[in-house]
């Protein structure tokens, strides 16, 4: 494991912890899209099915359990915790995320490395993760109110994706035969979505500064 991968995983974990902290302590999920959170829960549930079939390391198994547990907890809080649910922007969070699920499933059935149950679901999870942030970005554009914690959550997620790309570049040059087109292309698409968002976030922040 290289430093980029470790830093990426830690950034990813912090992003989820920031979100859980916000929801658990402030009892508010204002500005958070439950659709994006449901997509992440599906991503982890389908990608980590191999938790039962292949063991990599205690670190990997532990992190998989962290991501599964945290994503399902966040969905549970937003859907079923009364105080938290009251703060949910239901009218604004209208992205049809099941359309994304269906499209990614079809794509995984068409484009994969091996046509096996676990492999197709693993590929599906990569496609879905690439676009899972879309409902969250749409919600932010609609409400136009981004609090510090939600901003930090998205910023940390973007950082995690950027670090994973550095990790792949590092592995490509240090490990023979490390070539993973599907992982790389979906990872790149996902990172570009964040970069696009940050670009416009930065522009509006700069304009606000000017107004002041």
């Amino acid at each position: 494991m290289n430093i980029f991968r470790l830093a990426g995983d830690m950034t990813h974990m912090f992003s989820v912890l920031v979100l859980l902290l916000k929801i658990h302590t402030i009892k508010s999920c204002a500005g958070v899209s439950v659709k994006t959170q449901e997509l992440y829960a599906i991503v982890f549930a389908t990608r980590y099915l191999d938790i039962f079939t292949s063991f990599v390391s205690i670190y990997n198994t532990f992190m998989k359990l962290v991501f599964l547990g945290s994503s399902f907890s966040i969905v549970w809080y937003m859907r079923y915790h009364k105080a938290v649910h009251r703060t949910y922007d239901r009218e604004q969070d209208t992205f049809r995320h099941w359309f994304l699920v269906l499209s990614c499933l079809l794509l995984a059935l068409l484009i994969h490395e091996k046509f096996t149950f676990l492999e197709v679901l693993w590929t599906f999870s990569l496609y879905l993760e690439a676009v899972a942030i879309l409902p969250q970005l749409v919600l932010l554009q609609r409400t136009r109110n981004i609090d510090n914690l939600t901003g930090q959550y998205i910023f940390l997620l973007g950082g995690y994706r950027g670090l994973y790309i550095l990790n792949w570049i590092y592995r490509y040059f240090t490990e023979p035969h490390f070539v993973h087109w599907i992982t790389w292309i979906t990872g790149l698409v996902q990172t570009l979505l964040y970069a696009d968002f940050f670009y416009y976030y930065f522009l509006s922040w700069k304009n606000n500064k000017k107004l002041n």
Partner: peptide, 10 residues
């Protein structure tokens, strides 16, 4: 071997 070693990532 190509896909298996990317599965050591999260």
């Amino acid at each position: 071997s190509s896909q298996s070693d990317s599965k050591d990532e999260l």
